[in-house]
């Protein structure tokens, strides 16, 4: 009996961990002046899940993830990350939270005065406070190898293509082993082949680093490859939710318009 229990317990634990909510948003509202950008956003992100937020430009998708990392504060509602309300955090708490969250910007946001190596070393020395040069070098090479850009280690961001910059940006966020990844339109501005490569890279990295992710996009191929679950956003509200296949069959005209592109 005791042996059976031992077998059941880890399974239960793994399942409970899988169902753990890492981000919980309830009735989040945000306005800039008279413009209401987020009207009533409610969602949960579970551990290990890839949630894609689909919507046209200017619908408040990026504002949602900026609220998650505390770059913006919601006007109303609660946004809990790992059970803590982001809006109520002080600077130190916010800093600690941000170490657990990776944010890939649309442009990659590489520090253009630094080489690729220095870009990757920056979070290791400033955030994780590592001092051992050989350990830092090893980590940098390992993560760059993971995104297939070890050859570009001493190049400046200005020498890289758009796709390469996104890969380096992804490597820079993953190097600190974040538990949550937020992607702001990771494939925008890239050709279809590179977009697909980036989408597959996101999926591979999620499996390798076991992150939970929110992916903001309007690229259907990216959504198809990466999403466990998709929410469709329109005019500051979530109007539909489901898997890629479920939403393909949706009757909602706005949802259908994405799939008929």
């Amino acid at each position: 009996m005791a042996v059976a229990k031992e077998h059941i317990e880890p399974k239960k634990k793994a399942s409970a961990q899988k169902d753990e909510v890492v981000i919980h948003a309830q009735g989040v509202k945000k306005a800039f002046g008279d413009k209401k950008v987020l009207k009533n956003i409610t969602f949960d992100l579970k551990r290990g899940e890839n949630m894609v937020v689909l919507g046209k430009s200017g619908q408040g998708k990026s504002v949602t993830i900026q609220c998650v990392v505390g770059l913006l504060k919601p006007d109303e509602g609660t946004l809990d990350v790992f059970g803590e309300n982001v809006a109520e955090m002080n600077d130190d708490e916010l800093k600690q939270l941000r170490i657990k969250i990776g944010f890939l910007f649309q442009s990659g946001a590489l520090y253009d005065s630094m080489t690729v190596r220095e870009n990757l070393e920056f979070p290791l020395t400033r955030v994780l406070k590592l001092t051992d040069q050989s350990e830092i070098g090893k980590k940098v090479e390992e993560v760059l190898d993971g995104v297939g850009l070890l050859d570009a280690i001493d190049k400046l961001p200005s020498d890289l293509s758009g796709g390469m910059r996104k890969r380096v940006g992804l490597a820079r966020t993953l190097i600190v082993n974040p538990e949550i990844m937020l992607y702001d339109e990771p494939t925008t501005g890239l050709d279809p082949i590179t977009s697909r490569e980036i989408s597959e890279l996101i999926l591979n990295m999620q499996k390798k680093y076991k992150t939970s992710s929110i992916i903001i996009t309007h690229d259907m191929e990216c959504a198809r490859i990466t999403a466990d679950r998709i929410v469709v956003m329109n005019e500051g509200e979530y109007i539909a939710e489901g898997t890629f296949k479920e939403l393909q069959k949706s009757d909602n005209e706005i949802v259908r318009s994405f799939f008929n592109e």
């Binding site: 990392v69 770059l71 800093k95 600690q96 941000r98 170490i99 969250i101 944010f103 910007f105 946001a109 520090y111 920056f122 979070p123 400033r126 955030v127 820079r172 966020t173 600190v176």
Partner: peptide
């Protein structure tokens, strides 16, 4: 923003 959200 990238520096800020990285915790630096």
């Amino acid at each position: 923003d990238a520096m800020e959200v990285s915790g630096a």
